[in-house]
Nucleic acid binder design. Structure first.
Lengths: 376, 376
DNA sequence: TTTTTTTAGTGAAGCGTCTTTATAAAACGG
DNA sequence: CCGTTTTATAAAGACGCTTCACTAAAAAAA
């Protein structure tokens, strides 16, 4: 017998025995959420639960306000007309906070369908540590007060390494090291709080709102820093030290340009928006396209092993389209396709995000939706 | 955050009250399997089920022969003496088949603890397609007959891309394309059959028998080809086209040595055992160490993005120790640590496998153990 | 028009599995 | 020798799903 004391019992199967009801409930809710209004009979077919069970679950959801009856189905069919049931996106609101920008924290109130209803900003004014946390807290409080419905929860996308309990283990930009952000917000605001890394949140947003449908998706966020989020079968990869996706300081050129991290040739030192813009500004017009292509190729070379190893189906870039679109994207795609197995390269979709700067806000909302309702 | 089900509903994981029982049963079995003999009260504590439930589950397991009572606990304590219950590795046998070697298919009979009891080989004699499948089938049949206990199932590690139903979608070496291997063996032998890619099987073996305990593990198998298996939280990454880990033909040098795949600079063209040995043979003694180091560095450069992106905790190399140990391993480790985030590089364990050529056989057995009993 | 078929939805009874509560057994400690 | 602690099982109850039986309403067929 493999004597491996202390190895945890399989945590992968999230479905616990007593949780069967909860699971089935979220199965129904998920179907209403992503497939739109359906009759109870439709739900029974798609979930392969019995009509009786569906009836009970739906009336529970209706009594909570999460679902509503929408009247008879349009278009005539044989048999008793079905009563359509739909998800009600206005049942509650979500407060979302994006801490990934340097000078301004951004926040929003969203409905359950991810529609942004209210936005707000709060200048950080260079504050670090507790001070920065206070800015985030005040912004969250302001938005909770502005929400016109019960607040389902508060989602936060933070730079740095975030553990599953919502403690920011390390975020140098904000002067945070072991900052218990989720606990802080929860104790002050009395609402469920979910915190994740900003790039990971952006990846969730692509899955739920950006049309990323493959089972293996990598989302690369390029801004002040460079970060990634990986979704396998819709679930975020967390990593051994919760640092999955922290590839900004992966070295891809040796030797390369120096980086703030103390080393050189980091992905961030070559691709981050300020660094890339600065480099381009130094060049004459005609050499810029080439420099952009070169950067794209570097990225492609770095991503190829990841795409190949995980057999990813989709790679999404989120950042300024004027930098990442066109030549950059083409060069990256070419570099990847030259390097990976043809069958993988052919099927791979490599594209820009359509969510732009809302990705982190939307992703933070997904944290709440999936944490509180089991929906995404 | 919560590992949420993907956008699509997954009717496969439908949870009925009856499934809860199965889950709890495997929870108990898993604990007995990996943590060793315990009393019913111990099991109740570790699984957080009630003593009553444990009592019922344990007597079910005992009646099936999977568990046995081992008498009172050694060493006196307060209270009624506990009766120890243990997993019985000899309750059944497993037939394992390794198709990864070129000239010989290897097979074995193992007990449930992974102890190899009988081995057998079957020469393929260059047969391809149906012929090769027939060799595998005959080998499996021979081993099923040699098993001294009921055969729990048949596990197969095959080169190429294998889908979850056990169909080998593509294995050029064996002339297979869409070969329904699991169905074939199941129909002929009447036992449950589980098929997986050979490198993926080797990764499972490292997890269950090789002491790989981190939540993120990559196992690189270097032999005639080069392949990988990635385990996240104990579960294999499958990939969008079931091709996860197929990194043999990832291009890491451009230009590089030509490869059988038609391109050049593939990982396999540089690292596969025959190619590496051939290259070394051409060199004078003094240059060999350097060539080995160079190969290790190339591997490290290719793996660094993967390790960084997934925040892996452990990388295991399986292959000839005379090639992969020493300079190769050191060079790979150095190359990786130079490139990834220091916090990731420090914690990373990069080592050789201790399972050697049994990895695929053991991993195929794990397929059966986890598929049939839910233990690993 | 009337009857049959098809689809939608709900109530009642039953079954499996977990939990709670109660009880018995066996060891230690004062 | 009697309370305390720990182990284990038995009996009763709760929960949630399924099956079976039924009503409801509309199209299709006779």
């Amino acid at each position: 017998m493999p004597a491996t004391p202390g190895r945890a019992l399989r945590p992968t199967t999230k479905v616990m025995p007593g949780q069967a009801r909860v699971y089935n409930r979220s199965l129904v809710l998920q179907s209403l959420y992503s497939d739109g209004p359906q009759s109870r009979a439709d739900l029974a077919r798609v979930t392969s639960l019995t009509p009786v069970t569906i009836g009970a679950l739906v009336s529970e959801l209706i009594s909570e306000g999460l679902a509503v009856e929408l009247g008879p189905r349009a278009g005539a069919r044989v048999g008793k007309p079905a009563t359509m049931v739909g998800f009600d996106p206005s049942a509650a609101h979500i407060v979302s906070i994006d801490l990934s920008r340097d000078v301004m924290f951004r926040g929003a109130v969203l409905d359950l369908a991810g529609t942004v209803l209210v936005t707000a900003e709060a200048p950080r004014d260079g504050r670090l540590g507790e001070g920065a946390a206070q800015v985030a807290l005040d912004l969250a409080r302001e938005l909770v007060e502005k929400a016109g419905r019960p607040v389902l929860g508060i989602g936060v996308g933070s730079p740095g390494v975030v553990d599953p309990e919502g403690t920011v283990l390390s975020a140098p930009n904000l002067g945070w090291s072991g900052m218990p952000l989720a606990r802080l917000l929860n104790e002050s605001l009395g609402r469920p709080v979910h915190v994740a890394n900003d790039a990971n949140a952006a990846a969730l947003a692509e899955h739920s709102f950006g049309g990323a449908t493959r089972s293996g998706v990598l989302v690369l966020t390029v801004g002040l820093g460079v970060g990634a989020g990986i979704l396998l079968d819709g679930a975020l990869v967390r990593g051994d030290r919760f640092a999955a996706g922290e590839i900004g300081h992966l070295i891809i050129e040796d030797p390369g340009p120096p980086c703030a991290c103390g080393r050189s040739g980091c992905l961030e030192s070559m691709l981050s928006v300020p660094r890339l813009r600065a480099r381009l500004a130094e060049l004459p017009e005609i050499e810029r396209q080439q420099a952009i292509s070169k950067a794209g190729t570097s990225l492609g070379i770095a991503l190829a092993p990841v795409i190949s190893t995980l057999d990813l189906g989709e790679v999404v870039l989120n950042g300024p389209p004027d930098l990442l679109g066109g030549a950059f994207l083409d060069a990256a795609a070419t570099a990847v396709r030259r390097r990976v197995l043809p069958v993988v390269g052919h099927a791979l979709e490599l594209r820009l995000s359509t969510l732009h700067e809302n990705a982190v806000l939307l992703g933070s909302a997904v944290l709440v939706l999936s944490g509180e309702l089991g929906v995404s």
